[in-house]
Design a protein around this nucleic acid. Structure first.
Lengths: 348, 348
DNA sequence: GTTAGCACTCGAAAGATTTGAGTGCTAATA
DNA sequence: TATTAGCACTCAAATCTTTCGAGTGCTAAC
């Protein structure tokens, strides 16, 4: 059996109504849409068909119908018209901020505010290159390494040292570090490279160990998938997750960066569709405890080709239209910011 | 009417039992403690007295008794023996970490792990002095200011500039900045000081504006009361807060740094008692929506006399003994760390 | 002062009843 | 052949009822 036009219309009405009300939708409700002009009995017959096809189910006999994951999927892919972009006010959303980190935090916040769902944003994952590296002497036992990578992501690393260095020594180290590291991508900085540097430097090799140790730590940290979240408490407002335990598990998951990294890596695997928006509905999520959630993510692009993800986690019954259009607008805005001004900072 | 010894004993047993079980405590339960040797009828009479005095109440007729805020207060002040310190393993709790920020985050985590409550930790609030300040040129339009203050708290600030500076200029600025700022307390850095610097420098005054702007921002940021939290989701596990809405409001409060600052400032006002442990029970909290919570805080001291707060937020029915002793141990450990090694970093 | 005994209270749990939205089926209709 | 009116049926949710038992307060006796 195929979905004819009328079935599609009815399915769309059912899902749209359910998204609005949250109540199972009965045949009478649908029959009342006057552009349809069908009796409830006819709707019932169609509904029975749609149920057989797996698009809707009854939570129990003698209740209305609610969409299945398959139903949602069909709705998202084929039935939903997206909201007109017009209504989302642009450019007021994001204030100018200088640092990638702050910008992304703000994106998460804005998104949470606009959608009322839990949101998460990842920093672009790409071959970040070292833009600037500097070793400074804070006091006799302490060095400070500052590493700025493309995108103005800054990492600090305190490096405790045994030997007292004078300023000239530090200067030498700085020259050495910059010679080797400036412009290098973070992935390039590994033991091999470091051994090369050691050879070249000859003396100081004991101290060098400590310095490299610190720098590698900083680089690793900078290389981790950074995730910013906002609006986690919105999870408590999903009415469908009646179970407090489940809710709390979800919340904990949302507090745990590692879990989130996993989640994001799962979801960004397959990108196929329009404008890099991906929707994962219920069981489509490979992550545990997320069966009652939908995840919608969008991908933004850096001029260098690197990409990052912004996304929301909400209940399956969510306003997909709005979420998709909000995400789309935000990514466009982000793309703009990154592409207009190569680098994030520029004053208005 | 005064509390005689027997009444005290009975009150203590009631509260201890209630803390354990969470159920209202009946007269029979108490009469079974065999070191008491009293019938339930006698206990009932005593209970009636204790109720009249306001230490306990019945949630409803024909239920057992539960402690009032006044009851808890008396328990905490007079009846509770603290747990022996012995059982808390020391020194394994905190790994060595170099930066204040990381250390405090870890304290929050450890505390949450040990108590299963929501925890919060503030950075010491004191006249932080600038240990080290450095301006670097990242690229033609961007300077980076790095400020390290006592306690190895690091602030970075990106400063966009219009004019292209060469390295020599930057060096000059650095000398200027360090001459004025090194050793200065953050509070000292204000417009006045900056004007003095401007005068001294003469030329470059346009650029100086931008630089100072950035530095003041960084200083202000460093000067805010920094709060680290952990285990916020534990709030969901307080069984007594049946109301999901209240819980969610609490959680939101816990996500909101400003609210927390407010909370902390409220609670650290009056310090009176033993070892700087403060307990705020129920209505004693000046903060809204916290009537069903107790807050226990402890104060740790830096060698310079600065103090910070570590604390937990939990339900009124909490294991005060355990919380107090855990807090006590952690503060002692923190005090140790700060006082043994002046500054945080030192390798084992 | 303490206690045994007893009537009483009231929340929680379990069961019974009512209500109404919604269904599926059938037979009539266009 | 597709649509519809009509009707019996179902079942969750809300409401009321009953039962149960833990716990109380009071009184009279020790």
């Amino acid at each position: 059996m195929e979905l004819d036009e009328r079935k599609k219309t009815i399915l769309k009405l059912i899902i749209a109504t359910y998204l609005e009300t949250g109540e199972p939708v009965g045949s009478r409700t649908i029959s009342k849409f006057n552009d349809l002009n069908l009796s409830s009995a006819t709707i019932r017959n169609e509904m029975a068909d749609l149920e057989e096809l797996g698009y809707i189910v009854q939570p129990h006999t003698s209740a209305g119908r609610i969409p299945t994951d398959k139903g949602y999927r069909f709705y998202v892919d084929n039935l939903m018209e997206e909201k007109e972009d017009a209504e989302v006010e642009k450019s007021t959303l994001l204030e100018r901020v200088d640092r990638m980190e702050l910008l992304l935090k703000q994106v998460a916040k804005v998104l949470a505010y606009n959608t009322n769902y839990a949101t998460l944003v990842t920093a672009p994952k790409y071959k970040k290159t070292v833009k600037f590296i500097q070793l400074s002497k804070v006091d006799d036992e302490t060095l400070l390494a500052v590493i700025v990578v493309e995108g103005n992501l800054i990492k600090n690393q305190i490096i405790p040292i045994d030997t007292i260095l004078d300023n000239e020594d530090v200067l030498k180290f700085n020259i050495l570090l910059n010679t080797f590291l400036q412009g290098a991508s973070l992935e390039d900085i590994n033991l091999e490279m470091i051994n090369a540097m050691k050879k070249q430097s000859g003396e100081y090799s004991i101290i060098l160990d400590q310095i490299f140790q610190g720098i590698i730590e900083a680089v690793n940290e900078a290389n981790e998938l950074e995730i910013y979240t906002s609006g986690a408490t919105n999870i408590l407002k999903y009415p469908e997750i009646g179970d407090i335990i489940k809710t709390s598990e979800l919340l904990e998951k949302f507090e745990d960066k590692e879990e989130l990294t996993h989640l994001i890596e799962e979801t960004t695997g397959n990108k196929d569709d329009n404008h890099d928006i991906q929707v994962y509905i219920g069981e489509e999520n490979a992550v545990q405890n997320m069966e009652d959630c939908s995840i919608v993510t969008a991908t933004y692009k850096m001029p260098e080709g690197a990409t990052g993800t912004i996304g929301i986690v909400g209940p399956k019954r969510m306003d997909y239209k709005k979420v998709v259009s909000t995400l789309k607008n935000l990514t466009i805005e982000l793309d703009d910011i990154f592409n207009k001004r190569k680098g994030v900072n520029e004053d208005g």
